[in-house]
Design a protein around this nucleic acid. Structure first.
Lengths: 234, 234
DNA sequence: AATAATTAGTGTCAAATTAACATTTATTTT
DNA sequence: AAAATAAATGTTAATTTGACACTAATTATT
């Protein structure tokens, strides 16, 4: 059958860009490879797509293998498929980004892998095109977060306004006026004030909030207003 | 080598969602398959990724084969890889959407394929998961166009304001106040007024504009304001 | 015990932007 | 010459933004 000729001996893989937020800065989870090629170098967590599984499933499997976590927010981002991207084989990799709250999950990091959180501003050189993968995922995250309130996926159940502000500042690498930010955020009705205060991070203490899930699910384009309109991307 | 075992006999394909705008409505270019399986049914134009080419290149090749066009705006969108998405083989397909001006290119449609523009509101049932591919590409187009002025890629060199308005209305499937739209558009400095008028579509005639390419390249997030903030997506 | 230091949270206001609506203009058809 | 049509410009009140100042709650310092 001419149409289905076996002209592409291509291996299909997935790589996970795992973003985390520790209350202060945006992080990315990397592993130290314990196999060849490129043994002992830092890389993204990845794996091959099996014959009977979808790429989504493969990505979830890989994520679970590393972190033990399931039902994590994951989203497909770009595919890297340059014929020369890996030296020995033709591997096309589909990237997924995942959003998780680092604080909650530090303890169940797999012992099978040497894994470590690195600040997104300062992580080691990675193998192959994994640096590009992170850049591309970050770009995608920025785009998505400008339209949808997905960054709340990075926060714990209870969070403070200064934390959200730090998160947005980390994602977009800008600073903005906390007073105006807080006003807009509250006006959105996306968050609900709790009685409790977080006394860890400041003398005065900041009130905890929780997500208003009903509004969270309906909010979309209108959320774009959380970014200043002069936001200087490139 | 354990790591690179041949566990995935997966074929890798690309499919192109080719969006066009004829001055009135948003269209998508489909072909009638002349090969099995699913001969004579409508589908997206696609093809397999060759051993020595990147997915991007494969998509460009496929697009050129159908339309004769090169240097078209193309963007990767989602990957479809369900193990059962094609009945006979395990094919994972990377989708690309392309933006072209239908009017300019109707005449060089390949004679090798039976290809036809269909309104995005009303196209025939497609093979496999190609309907989902279109939906997903449309979603992506909306998201991208809310942040970046890419829709100008669908317009000819010279275009009128009523045309741009129709284009945005088509993409988001809403109507908005042309007076306010036009004011915002002009305020953006994205378009430059020409002396000439388009007399085809109205008695009075509408002035032609051309793109201000310098501003086009720098405009990004700020363009988000071209959508009403109450925009009701889902 | 008083005071300084720190960060959270609320308040003010002028300027810019939006949304809703009205009018004028250029041209063709009747 | 008048009517019809669609483009283009104008008006205005309400809302939102951006820039800034102040108050509040608590801990550390003297």
């Amino acid at each position: 059958m001419e149409y289905y000729r076996e002209d592409s001996a291509i291996l299909l893989a997935v790589d996970c860009i795992i973003f985390g937020f520790n209350g202060e800065s945006l992080q990315v989870l990397l592993i130290k490879r314990d196999f060849e090629p490129e043994r002992n170098k830092w890389s993204l967590m990845g794996g091959f797509v099996q014959a009977d599984e979808s790429p989504e499933l493969a990505a979830s499997r890989v994520l679970k293998k590393l972190t033990g976590l399931e039902n994590v927010y994951m989203e497909q981002c770009s595919v890297f498929g340059d014929p020369k991207r890996e030296p020995n084989n033709r591997v096309v990799s589909i990237c997924y980004f995942a959003l998780i709250d680092t604080q909650k999950y530090t303890h169940i990091l797999s012992e099978e892998y040497e894994a470590k959180w690195f600040p997104l501003q300062d992580y080691p050189t990675l193998i192959f095109d994994h640096d590009q993968m992170i850049s591309s995922a970050q770009h995608r995250l920025r785009m998505k977060a400008a339209l949808y309130p997905i960054l709340f996926e990075l926060l714990p159940e209870k969070f403070t306004i200064p934390q959200i502000a730090a998160l947005y500042e980390g994602v977009y690498n800008i600073e903005f006026d906390k007073r105006n930010f807080s006003r807009k955020l509250l006006a959105s009705d996306l968050i609900i004030k709790l009685d409790e205060k977080d006394k860890e991070n400041s003398k005065k203490g900041a009130f905890y909030f929780k997500l208003n899930t009903a509004i969270y699910k309906e909010k979309i384009m209108s959320f774009l207003r959380y970014l200043p309109s002069w936001f200087p991307e490139n």
